[in-house]
Each structure stands twice: as C-alpha cells, then as structure tokens.
C-alpha cells in the first residue's frame, strides 16, 4: 500500500512538471508564431497555432487531473487552495498565449516593418516574464528558498515590456500616414501582448504570498 501511495505522489510531481512544461512551451510557440507572422510565413504560423491549441488542451487536461487528485486524496491540506489557484493562474497564461496568437490569425493586422523589431522585443520580454514565473512555480514545489531568485526577474521583464509597449504605442500614433482605425488595432495588439506580462506579475505577487504562508 505504501509503495502504491508513494508511486501516486511521484505521479503528481511529474504531472505538475508536465503542466508547467506546457506553459513554458506555449511561450516558445507564441514567440515563434509571432515571428512567423511578421515574416509572413503563414503556413508555419498556422502550424504554431495548431501546436499551441494542442498544448493548451494538454495543459487543461493535466490541470483538471491534478485538481481532482488534490481534492480526492486530500493532499497538502494547508496549501491545497493556493496550489489550485496557482495552477489556474498558470493555465490562464497559457490561454492568453493561445488567445493572442488566435487574434493574429483572425485579424491579420498589417504591421509596418519599422514596428517589427519592437514587436519581437515585446514578445521576447513577455515570454521571459512567463518563463521566470514558470521557474518560480517549479521552485515553489521543489525548493521554496529558490523562489525569490526567479520571482524578481518577473518584475524586471514586466517593466521592460511596459517600456517597449509604451514606446511602440507612441511610435504607432506618431505615424501620420496610418488611419486611426489601423493605429487603434495595432495599439490593441500591443496592449494584448503586454497584458500577458502584467498577468505574469500578478501571479508572481500571489505566489510570493503562498511562499510566506509555507515558509518554515
């Protein structure tokens, strides 16, 4: 019986790792998808969308399984609520990556060449912010003292993405040859991407409270 239970626990640990892998992978897919879009490689872009949909499905499946296991087996009673919230927040990041990529596909915005670098930089910062929160979450489960090492990077990347987003929006509205509707569409895209970093920072703030609650 003992062996069986331990095996189950190892199962949970692996599932959590797998789930966080999906979040991290979604970031990479998003980055590469936006890059393909900017380079006008529509086929590869579509591939990334397909891939991110599958990743999101897998993430959802793993999260549901984990939630059920945590409740059914009454594991980690004192942190169960926090862990469930963390998993849901991480899942929302994954959803946002997918949503943003979908939006590119639906609206097909016309992004002028001079904004490409800034867009890439913005996406890079956002993905880095999410990567840092994924590492923080892993540390939360495995080595709580290491959480802080990763968490401050989330803030750093969020600030960076804010700076780029502001710069980009100024540049967009500085272009006199673009129509207002075009400007507004590009602004919305910029904000939509930037918001992912904001959400990552919110998750980090919640996580820092979970850490305090679990600190020995």
């Amino acid at each position: 019986m003992e062996f069986h239970i331990l095996k189950k626990k190892i199962g949970i640990e692996k599932q959590i790792d797998d789930f966080l892998d999906q979040v991290s992978e979604a970031g990479l897919l998003f980055k590469s998808g936006v890059d393909n879009f900017l380079k006008n490689r529509i086929e590869s872009f579509q591939e990334k969308i397909q891939h991110i949909i599958e990743t999101e499905h897998r993430g959802d499946f793993l999260r549901r399984g984990l939630e059920e296991m945590l409740y059914r087996q009454t594991l980690i009673p004192e942190s169960r609520g926090d862990v469930l919230e963390l998993l849901e927040n991480m899942d929302s990041l994954l959803d946002r990556f997918k949503g943003a990529l979908w939006r590119f596909d639906i609206e097909r915005p016309e992004i002028c060449g001079e904004f490409h670098d800034d867009f890439r930089e913005l996406v890079e910062c956002v993905v880095q912010a999410v990567e840092a929160i994924v590492l923080s979450a892993r540390a939360f489960f495995k080595d709580i003292t290491a959480v802080a090492d990763h968490m401050h990077k989330v803030s750093y990347w969020e600030t960076e993405s804010d700076k780029i987003s502001t710069r980009l929006q100024k540049a967009i509205f500085g272009r006199e040859d673009l129509g207002l509707s075009h400007k507004m569409q590009l602004r919305d895209f910029t904000r939509h991407v930037d918001e992912i970093a904001d959400v990552a920072e919110d998750v980090a703030d919640r996580l820092s409270i979970y850490v305090i609650k679990r600190s020995l």
């Binding site: 626990k9 949970i12 640990e13 594991l75 980690i76 495995k142 003292t145 679990r214 020995l216």
Partner: peptide
Amino acid sequence: LVAWFIMRFKIHMFTLDT
C-alpha cells in the same frame, strides 16, 4: 532541525506531504 532538513534536502511539496 526539521526546517533545516527540508531546506537542505529540497524535499518536494508532495513528498513532504507523504
């Protein structure tokens, strides 16, 4: 002592639970 042990050996949350 227990806190030191947990920090030192970086025990996973679920293993610690068990």
